[in-house]
Amino acid sequence: MSLWQAASQWLAMWGRGWNRFWFSPRLPHTLALVRLLGGSMLFYTHLVWARDLEGFFGPHAWIPPDLSRQQAAGSWAWSHLWFVQSTAALWALHVAALLVFAALAVGFFTSFVAPLAWLLAVSYCHRLNGALFGLDQINVTIAFCLAIGRSGDAYSLDCLWRKLRAQPVPEKSVWTNLAIRLLQLHLCIIYLFGGMGKLRGETWWIGDAFWYSIASYEYQSWDITWLAPYPALMSLVSHVTVFWETYYCALVWPRLTRPIALALAVLVHGGIAVFLGMPTFGMAMLIANLAFVPEAWVSAVVACLIGPIGRLHGRACGPVVDR
């Protein structure tokens, strides 16, 4: 075999792998569960703004519309909320946004509301720069992927509606696979940069970082500073966190190490949710991690969890068979 033939075969193999990775049709169940949970998180995140809508969006907000717009000057950021002055209009738009997020969560006109939910989530972020944190970044990432994939093809009102009208239920879709692949790659990038950021900090090298995270009164939601006499344990948690975060992008792909990477994700984000006062952020990261859970598992677990409704839905949307 000539060098040219070998190179051609190698390139063809990579081309087939590329196409298989991005363009293989995929069943909707995992993305649908991400939609159900991620849509609920988007709804809740935005519902909480209603606690003080005037205070965060009104003309005398913490960061008023003009200042928010000025902060974004020179960038391509844009928000419809920069132009809302009246309280009534603000409430009307906010309620409409909540309805869109609720519709996304339950899968009602999903192919229409999913892109709309993403646009709205992004627009809120551009308006609220100065009060945002990791939760908003993950919300937008999930919403982006939901806007691309066919997340309404399972666990949705759309799906039940098709059943009632005896219409065929969509099965595998390339768009669903694209959405899942994008979410998987986004997670790898997020963790890689989070891990590299930690490698710049000496407390993560020394092993003190875990202590200084749990000893922050403002973050803390459950006091576990009784761990103070156990420095070796705290160092271990710090180092495992950095190792896991930095190498997640490698560990999560092989079947052998994927369960370990995902189990550590549950421990780290569960810990953040329970002990560090960020239950929403912790849950949003776990929702995103669902992208690595096979459709057959999701289908089986959901059916088991919701029992009779699951059986009804199973009939509506068809069993998971990896065709």
Partner: peptide, 11 residues
């Protein structure tokens, strides 16, 4: 994406 990086510190 930083997430408590480079160091968790004072609030």
């Amino acid at each position: 994406y930083f997430f408590f990086a480079p160091n968790p510190g004072p609030s």
